[in-house]
Amino acid sequence: MSVVSEQSDSGEEVTVSVAGRFDYRIYDSFKASFSGIENKSVTVNVDLSETDYMDSSALGMLLMLREHVGRAATVLLVKPSPDVMRVLTIANFDKLFSIRQ
């Protein structure tokens, strides 16, 4: 269970990787991964390839991230597993976010 955040040299791109469980227990580290972002046109890749499962609290946290970076920014959900994708689909998040397999 961990959150790792990496920023490209240009600052145009930030990758937030969530490994293991994605739920309220990682709230502090997930919030910290994006709270420093100030670039309004940033692209945030949320790497879900190592995410074991995601619940409704994680959905709230993804919306929080989107709200923080603002409308001019892009938030991409990257490589969700079929199980994680199912939760995203149930909540209609496949329409709220861009998803890259």
Binding site: D55, S56, S57, L59, G60, L63, M64, I90, A91, N92
Partner: peptide
């Protein structure tokens, strides 16, 4: 739920 719903909570029982 609709695509317009940006509430931070309230999706648990839907799932």
């Amino acid at each position: 739920e609709s695509t317009a719903d940006l509430s931070l909570y309230g999706r648990g029982l839907l799932i």
